[in-house]
């Protein structure tokens, strides 16, 4: 895996953890805000800024975490493609895969 991909994966996961923490903190602050207000009309803004926004941030954290997983898988597929490409000329790779490789990467051997 190249340095660029590694940095991107680390960045995605770091962002995910930060968003999870921020979402959790927002939920907690929302709960604290609501619990300190007596009037329902003053609790509702906390419900929006703390509750709904906290859930939104947790969802964004999930986005970064899962997209890091997908990028990881994508990078592995890139390695497989490169490996298959290198082996294409050796007769190790079956014909259908060689055809697919040729479609995505160019000619892959005799």
């Amino acid at each position: 895996m190249g340095l660029r991909n590694w940095m991107r994966l680390i960045g995605d996961r770091a962002a995910a953890v930060a968003l999870f923490a921020l979402g959790g903190a927002t939920l907690l602050l929302g709960w604290l805000g609501v619990s300190q207000e007596v009037l329902p009309a003053r609790q509702v803004p906390y419900l929006i800024s703390g509750g709904v926004t906290g859930l939104f941030l947790l969802g964004l954290g999930g986005l970064f975490w899962l997209s890091a997983d997908l990028r990881d898988e994508w990078t592995r597929l890139g390695s497989i493609e490169a490996t298959l490409g290198q082996l294409a000329g050796s007769g190790l790779v079956d014909e259908p895969v060689r055809r697919n490789l040729a479609a995505v990467s160019g000619p892959v051997g005799p």
Binding site: L60, L63, V97
Partner: peptide
């Protein structure tokens, strides 16, 4: 608003998953 944003997130992830599956199918 939260639904709108999370729908975007879901669409992004589903699209990514579909692309990964297509490449997996192509290679494997």
């Amino acid at each position: 608003g939260a639904f709108l944003g999370l729908a975007g997130v879901a669409g992004w992830l589903i699209g990514g998953r579909r692309t990964v599956r297509a490449r997996t199918r192509l290679l494997l």
